[in-house]
């Protein structure tokens, strides 16, 4: 999933300072799963905005709605008859959501309520970790099923570097050295010979480096 974290409430309040009719829009996709932008978090943010505005003596109207997804135009369309009642929208979806909303409703101000962090998963309750860098050319099968692009601090294709330290990365003891894991797993699987092959430089054309990406599947285009 796309993992996001809440922006500090102070930052959100500064963004919407001067607006008194605010719609908080959640998303039932990834951000619901990572507990940052579902119906529950929409209610919390809306309540917090009401309290903070009231404290400042402002009379506000804060609406709450949680869409099926904010990355599909058909769900964004559900806001059609609602947006005119508001001056600003705070979207609790990943970076995609607020952009889709502001593209669809150019007349309204849209603010991001979360910081989109990475593509990853929950490794335990309340803890998420990055797994994919979206490079556009998956190579994890060469590396024991682990991605050195996303998970090695230096994205080494021929690691581990000399900074590998008791299974941890030189950058921080909080970060696992993924190359340590790759080497140990591949050796345990008897695949040392594969690791001895020099992996050539990667083409980053399919990654963000090739410019903003778009994907067309002809068989699906109406």
């Amino acid at each position: 999933m796309i993992v996001a974290e809440a922006k500090p409430i102070k930052e959100i309040l500064e963004m919407i300072d001067g607006f008194n009719k605010i719609l908080v829009v959640g998303c039932k996709g990834c951000v619901t799963v990572c507990n940052v932008g579902g119906a529950k978090e929409v209610a919390i943010l809306a309540s917090a905005i009401r309290i903070a505005k009231k404290k400042k003596g402002k009379d506000v109207e804060v609406g709450e709605i949680t869409l099926e997804r904010q990355c599909d135009p058909e769900y964004i369309e559900e806001l059609r008859n609602i947006v005119q009642n508001y001056e600003a929208i705070v979207s609790l979806a990943c970076g995609v959501g607020p952009q889709f909303i502001s593209e669809r409703y150019p007349e309204i101000r849209v603010f991001p309520g979360v910081n989109t962090r990475f593509m990853g998963g929950a490794i335990e309750h309340g803890v998420w970790a990055e797994r994919c860098a979206g490079c556009g050319q998956c190579v994890i099968h060469y590396f024991g099923g682990m991605c050195p692009i996303a998970r090695c601090s230096k994205s080494l294709m021929n690691g581990p570097c000399g900074g590998s330290n008791h299974g941890k990365c030189e950058v921080s003891p909080e970060i696992d050295c993924i190359w340590d894991k790759i080497v140990r797993k591949m050796m345990a699987q008897g695949r040392l010979d594969e690791l001895l092959k020099i992996r050539p430089p990667k083409s980053w054309l399919t990654a963000r480096d090739g410019g903003p990406r778009k994907m067309v599947r002809e068989e699906l285009v109406k």
Binding site: P8, I9, K10, L13, A48, I51, A52, K55, K56
Partner: peptide, 8 residues
Amino acid sequence: NMLEQMGI
């Protein structure tokens, strides 16, 4: 922490 940021 949130309350403090909200001015409460």
